[in-house]
Design a protein around this nucleic acid. Structure first.
Length: 269
DNA sequence: TCGATCCTGTAG
DNA sequence: CTACAGGATCGA
């Protein structure tokens, strides 16, 4: 599920719901969830701590706890993270639940159980996310910076964009959508895109993410299934064989890095 | 740079 | 039954 916009929406909601709530107990239902850390380490360290801040870096959720510790959550493919008002009513796909004082619970709801949870000191947390590229919605992320980083990579540009070391937060959907808007073929080597196109790509990334955040606000970070009506409307993703909204040509699907890539063969070269 | 892997669910 | 799924990591 979640790329940057969905994680951003989840964080916004969590920030309002968890501010200064105290952890009563952590229940880590599957040991893999904290690998390579020992679940018992978290279960013993979390009780009594306050959730003071909620931050996002790329697709990582960083819960700032009292005592300077950080609980990092990565939702991977199908995770969702939200507060339920009554800890007794947990969904069947709950993989970890953190009881809060007062009866609420923070739920890691993750059908595929690929999401992960780690507890760090402030210094460890900083080191753990140090390898991430710039936040695409920050001022640090300029067309110039994108051009410099892209110029140093021969990767196909779609894979380049999904590599979190280059830009933090893009995944399979929004990488494809940004490339469509910029009119760039996903297989083109990153270092063979002219600077005018890089500027278009830079704009497209920001535009796509901003719009997607708006759509995600009301549909993510809450219990239950995702609400259809508010979903971001994709131009190419998951539209193989359908007509391109720009030129009417059939959308193609190819494999890149083991993932599906969708694009318009006429608009993207 | 590929393929396998971690998991479960759904669509065909 | 097979293919595929909004992610990331590992080893060949």
């Amino acid at each position: 599920m979640p790329e940057l916009p969905e994680v951003e929406a989840i964080c916004g909601r969590l920030r309002r719901q968890t501010r200064n709530s105290e952890i009563l107990r952590a229940h880590i239902l599957r040991p893999r969830t904290t690998h390579p850390q020992d679940p018992s380490l978290l279960e013993s360290a979390l009780p009594g701590r306050l959730i003071e801040t909620v931050a996002r870096r790329g697709k990582h959720i960083l819960l700032g706890l009292s005592g300077g510790h950080v609980l990092r959550v990565h939702l991977r493919m199908t995770g969702n993270l939200y507060v339920i008002p009554d800890a007794r009513f947990r969904p069947a796909t709950t993989r970890t639940w953190i009881e809060l004082v007062g009866g609420k619970a923070l739920i890691l709801d993750d059908p595929r159980a690929l999401g992960v949870l780690h507890l760090f000191s402030a210094a460890e947390a900083a080191a753990a996310i140090a390898g991430l590229g710039p936040e695409p919605l920050s001022r640090e992320f300029t067309a110039r910076l994108l051009a410099d980083v892209a110029g140093a990579s021969r990767q196909p540009v779609k894979l380049f964009l999904m590599d979190q070391r280059h830009v933090a937060g893009l995944g399979n959907i929004y990488a494809a959508e940004a490339l469509f808007r910029a009119g760039i073929h996903p297989a083109r080597p990153a270092n063979r895109i002219r600077s005018a196109r890089i500027s278009a790509l830079h704009n497209a990334i920001i535009g796509v993410l901003r719009e997607a955040i708006r759509s995600a606000r009301n549909s993510y970070g809450r219990p239950g299934s995702i609400r259809e009506a508010e979903q971001f409307q994709t131009a190419v993703y998951d539209r193989e064989g359908q007509p391109c909204i720009g030129c009417g040509a059939r959308i193609h699907r190819i494999q890149q890095g083991g993932r599906s890539t969708y694009f318009c063969p006429r608009c993207q070269r």
